[in-house]
């Protein structure tokens, strides 16, 4: 008799838990749909993360940074490392031949998602095709964006940085006079350990550095809202080409400049 009661009670409790879980996840999903930011990555960017130190994988068009998970994966590390820096969809769906990973594994994978793979053709073929479309310039007008910030910036010298993944990439300095840019210059520009400001002219990446300079030269004498034109660097920089176009990141510059504005005046005029 007691067994009957326990079975019945457990069943009712079970139904309650499942319904609650489902309801909570439905509610959370609804609120989350609005802030779903999707960074786009090219295959070159993906390929840069091909080791145990930084292992990114693309599965079904989504990019995942699984570096942290490698030591916890049930198989030996080689099995996972084999797929770093490239499209691992095939490995994902063939845990053993013909057998995909479990839904539980899929849920765990989700927490490592860092963005989406850009729908680019093979990089050797036509990289320039991916570059301009990669950062769609559809953003609200500069005035609107600026309106979202406090709005008034005093005249003076400003300094700001953009850092990502534990390393500073951009350090920028400019003077502001009556909400217009003057004397914009880089104090530091680096990516993946390369100090761009120290590059010699004959070096391959020098072109990239040159374009970043063109991007900040564009700001010279322009009003603050022009800053947001850098979301579409291809509109601003003249000599964009296949190679440098893939690497020029105007939004890093925007980020560094907004950091400078937030910090306030560094030096009074």
């Amino acid at each position: 008799m007691t067994v009957n009661k326990i079975a019945y009670t457990a069943f009712v409790a079970f139904c309650t838990v499942i319904v609650t879980l489902w309801a909570v996840s439905a509610l959370v999903a609804e609120t989350r749909e609005t802030d779903d930011d999707q960074r786009l990555f090219t295959e070159q960017e993906l390929a840069a993360h091909d080791s145990a130190e930084s292992c990114w994988k693309a599965i079904d068009g989504q990019v995942y940074d699984v570096t942290e998970y490698i030591p916890r994966h049930p198989t030996s590390e080689d099995v996972m490392l084999e797929w770093c820096g490239r499209d691992a969809t095939e490995g994902w769906y063939n845990k053993t031949p013909g057998r995909p990973h479990s839904p539980r594994a899929a849920a765990m994978l989700e927490q490592y998602r860092v963005g989406q793979l850009a729908d680019a053709p093979a990089p050797q073929a036509r990289p320039e095709a991916s570059a301009p479309t990669r950062e769609p310039a559809t953003h609200p007008p500069g005035r609107v964006l600026l309106g979202l910030s406090p709005g008034t910036y005093l005249d003076g010298r400003y300094r700001g940085v953009f850092s990502d993944r534990g390393a500073m990439q951009v350090n920028i300095q400019f003077d502001l006079r009556d909400h217009h840019f003057h004397n914009v210059r880089f104090r530091y520009l680096s990516y993946q350990g390369v100090d761009y400001l120290a590059l010699e002219e004959h070096e391959e990446l020098h072109a990239v550095m040159r374009q970043h300079r063109q991007a900040i030269d564009y700001l010279e004498g322009r009003p603050l809202s022009a800053l947001f034109d850098l979301y579409a660097p291809e509109e601003v920089v003249e000599d964009i080409d296949a190679f440098t176009g893939a690497t020029l990141r105007g939004n890093k510059l925007i980020s560094a400049i907004r950091d400078a504005l937030n910090r306030g005046v560094y030096q009074w005029p």
Partner: peptide, 24 residues
């Protein structure tokens, strides 16, 4: 029943959607 509930709860720290993904 515990099998279902525990597996779902195990994925809950990831996100509630992950938990429902595991069982549905």
């Amino acid at each position: 029943m515990l099998h279902v509930v525990w597996l779902a709860f195990g994925a809950l720290p990831n996100s509630p959607e992950a938990a429902t993904q595991v069982i549905f």
